[in-house]
Simulated assay, not measured.
Amino acid sequence: MFRFVLEGKDKESKARFGYFETIHGRVETPIFMPVGTVGSVKTVTPDELKDIGAQIILGNTYHLHLRPGDDVVKYFGGLHKFINWDRPILTDSGGFQVFSLSELKDINEEGVTFRSHLDGRKIFLTPEKSIEIQSNLGSDIMMVLDECVPYPCEKDYVKKSIELTRKWAIRCKNAKINSWQALFGIVQGGVYKELRRVSAEQIVEIGFDGYAIGGLSVGEENILMYDITDFTTDFLPENRPRYLMGVGTPEDILECVERGIDMFDCVMPTRNARNGLLFTSYGKLHIKRQEWKLSDKPIDPNCNCYTCRNFSRGYLRHLYKAGEILALRLNTIHNLHFYISLVKEIRNAIKSGCFKKFKREKLEMFKIGGDNV
């Protein structure tokens, strides 16, 4: 069964720390969840994820339903056994991928009809179907099906959309099968504060194990995302975890922890690693740059990940320029280690009562730029 414990709060901000428990273990918050879209965090093994310190990973309902099929995953005993991961898993509802990947889609109160990006076949996704798929996957935390509106979006459409999200959330809750699987509600409302308040109050009234803020980091300016996040968390219960979906940069995580967020996920560390952009305690570093050809420095002198302990920038640049798969793996190990270490440091700073000072110093260091160190 799912249980969340809020252990403490920062005196100068809305930052907080705690933990939640699932049948696959405990997760300390604030937490960053590596994204394992199709049942794997790209280029790294489950054991490497554990070595990095990952406590929970994310799987994607849409992609796993299309391939290999949630019925296949169920046959193998659920996603944990299928991918050999014995720690918690969160699955999204599939809604975001429907709205972002499918050019042709038809949304109505019953559900959404769309065409697969793999073979073009028509698929009808309802709230009940999303819960059925996630039940077959056997994730520890399921997400309700919602409509993620684009940015910008007309207020009248967003107003209708949050009502659809409310109705779908009720149907998801009623369709829930396994008592041990947690179900999180999702607050929508675009960048309109009054609609965010209405959506938050509606979703909280339905009652869920945790609450997510969706529909941000979709093109709006960062300052607007921070403002809407700060506003929305005021309407979410303190005794439930708060999840900001699809966010974000190290700066975003620091800013949004300050605004009361507990959980984050994003493809940024893994995707950027595969494109040669690395995160360091001094900001971003581009490993493909010519200046690293003869550099014997590690990526980050303050990092103790496997990559930084064993390899130079010169070697990592060589691997990347040569198109070696090892480059992608070593870069990913570093970036994930950086993100997971960052949230661990954030937790400790909140516990120690020095979060604001920690945040200020981190942001100043990021401005230096990893390429300048």
Rank of each mutant, 00 (worst) to 15 (best):
208 F>K: 00
39 G>L: 00
25 G>H: 04
196 R>G: 02
85 W>Y: 01
76 F>Y: 14
273 A>I: 10
8 G>K: 11
27 V>F: 05
247 V>E: 05
105 K>S: 11
158 V>G: 04
90 L>P: 07
221 E>T: 13
108 N>R: 15
342 L>Y: 05
137 L>P: 04
42 K>R: 08
283 G>R: 15
365 M>F: 08
223 I>A: 13
179 S>V: 11
258 E>M: 14
226 Y>P: 06
198 V>D: 13
133 I>D: 05
367 K>C: 08
360 R>G: 09
356 K>C: 13
92 D>L: 05
211 Y>M: 04
372 N>F: 15
34 P>V: 04
65 H>L: 14
157 Y>F: 09
312 S>P: 06
340 I>G: 00
272 N>I: 07
103 E>C: 15
150 P>R: 04
68 P>E: 00
141 I>Q: 01
153 C>R: 05
68 P>V: 02
97 Q>H: 07
264 F>P: 13
355 F>I: 12
90 L>K: 04
37 T>V: 01
198 V>S: 15
90 L>W: 04
158 V>H: 03
26 R>F: 09
139 S>T: 13
31 I>F: 13
180 W>I: 11
209 D>H: 15
318 H>A: 10
198 V>R: 12
195 L>Q: 10
41 V>Q: 01
337 H>T: 06
214 G>F: 05
207 G>T: 03
58 L>R: 07
336 L>F: 00
27 V>K: 07
13 S>N: 12
337 H>C: 02
79 L>G: 00
185 G>S: 04
68 P>R: 01
175 A>E: 00
256 C>G: 13
86 D>E: 09
266 C>P: 05
3 R>N: 12
321 K>G: 05
64 L>M: 11
110 E>F: 09
123 I>F: 13
243 Y>I: 07
371 D>Q: 08
367 K>Y: 10
248 G>S: 05
31 I>A: 12
169 A>S: 14
201 E>Q: 14
298 P>T: 09
168 W>R: 03
139 S>N: 06
178 N>Y: 09
110 E>W: 07
194 E>S: 15
180 W>R: 11
344 K>M: 11
